[in-house]
Computed example of a mutant assay.
Amino acid sequence: MEPGLAERLFTGRRLDRLTSIARTDPALVAHDLRHPSPAVRDALATADALLTCWGAPVLDAEALAAAPRLTAVVHAAGSVRGHITAACWARGIAVSSAAAANAVPVAEYTLAAILFAGKRVLPSARRYAELRTAHDWGAELAGAGNHRRTVGVVGASRIGRLVIGLLRPFDLDVLVYDPYLGGAEAAALGAEAVGLDELCARGDIVTVHAPELPETRSLIDARRLALMPDGATLINTSRGSLVAEEALVRELESGRLFAVLDVTEPEVPAAGSPLYSLPNVLLTPHLAGSLGNELHRLADAALSELERFARGAPFATPVTRESLHHSA
């Protein structure tokens, strides 16, 4: 995993728990398994499992050759697409991910963004800073509020489902689009299943939680952005590639839409991007996922999976080759 991350994940009792589960040296953090140090090479030769996180090296056939006993990879983060390869599946390696744990803070961020969008918090705060005087906010915000606001959730992923669950206590109408979700299942979640065009056309707030796949690139394109009602808000905490950014910028520059963007493409917008300064945009640096003390949730999830592996039990949150065709 990337430098310094292991020390933030496994502190205090979590480090004690790790060393009680497995024979390990937490100081051995390998970044390039193709050219390991002697100490890492020796560890790999007897390793039964790898504990990975963000920044994990690609586990291709060459890397796996150095770990002949390896039978499991436990990922203390979300997607495994960056390091799990066909060679892992061919070897029969069991894979687990803490995606469910990482989904929690993303869903919490999204809930806050939805409620703030409905109340028009961002533009009101900026306008208040400009006016710096008493003002008839009731008249200016006559169309604001979260009573019977329509929220469209794009993707019934782990995060999408958590968001729908978090919205239940509020007086909101929730739509969901997912090609793998039926109407009855959507209703059980507390949402109405609709097509993506209908969701965009009806949604006062559209929040994107679909996985990054070839078929989801520019899923929210210029045509679908144009379907969104005037004054609607687009929230993206998934991946920047799912939204046609140039088309979105045009809509934002016109003032017709609002946006809350935790992800962009590229991940850091160019220095001259209007996303930094547009008054109808809240741009955050990919912070919706786990950070700070939320890393402990990831560590706990990974350690629980390592415990299951150590006693010969199946993973509670396995990742399969087939699931990666339609998940992050």
Rank of each mutant, 00 (worst) to 15 (best):
P3W: 10
T11E: 15
T11S: 14
R13T: 11
R14D: 09
L15C: 07
L18W: 12
A22E: 01
A22Q: 01
D32T: 11
H35A: 15
P36K: 11
S37E: 14
S37D: 14
D42H: 13
D42C: 09
A43F: 12
A45S: 14
A45R: 15
A45G: 13
T46I: 14
A47F: 04
D48K: 02
L51E: 01
T52P: 03
T52V: 12
A56G: 01
V58D: 00
V58H: 00
D60H: 05
A61M: 03
A63M: 03
L64M: 07
A65C: 03
A66S: 15
P68T: 04
A76L: 06
V80I: 14
H83N: 03
G92N: 02
G92H: 02
A103N: 01
E108W: 09
I114L: 09
L115Q: 01
L115R: 02
R126W: 08
L131T: 12
R132I: 01
T133F: 05
D136V: 07
D136F: 13
W137N: 01
G143H: 14
A144N: 00
R148K: 11
R148D: 13
R149L: 15
G152N: 11
V153W: 12
A156F: 08
A156M: 07
S157A: 05
R158H: 12
R158L: 14
R161T: 14
R161E: 14
L162N: 11
V163L: 10
I164W: 08
G165Q: 11
G165C: 08
R168C: 07
P169F: 10
F170S: 02
D171T: 08
D171W: 04
D173W: 04
V176A: 13
Y177M: 01
P179I: 07
Y180T: 02
G182W: 08
G183D: 15
E185M: 09
A186F: 08
A188Q: 14
G190A: 10
G190I: 06
E192V: 13
A193E: 04
L196E: 06
E198V: 13
L199R: 06
L199I: 12
C200F: 07
C200L: 08
A201D: 08
T207W: 10
T207C: 13
V208N: 03
V208L: 13
P211G: 10
L213H: 11
I220W: 09
R223E: 15
A226C: 00
A226R: 12
L227I: 03
T233S: 11
L234G: 01
L234Y: 05
T237D: 05
S241L: 14
S241C: 09
L242H: 04
V243N: 05
L248G: 02
V249Q: 03
R250S: 13
R250C: 07
R256Q: 07
D262Q: 07
V263M: 12
E265K: 15
P269A: 11
P274S: 08
Y276P: 00
Y276A: 03
L278R: 04
T284N: 05
P285G: 06
H286S: 03
A288F: 11
E294H: 13
E294K: 13
H296W: 09
H296Q: 15
H296V: 11
R297T: 13
R297Y: 07
L298K: 00
A302E: 04
A302L: 10
R308D: 10
F309W: 13
F309P: 02
A310C: 04
G312F: 09
F315P: 00
T317K: 07
P318C: 08
V319D: 00
T320E: 04
S323V: 08
S323N: 02
L324Q: 15
H325D: 15
H325W: 12
S327W: 09
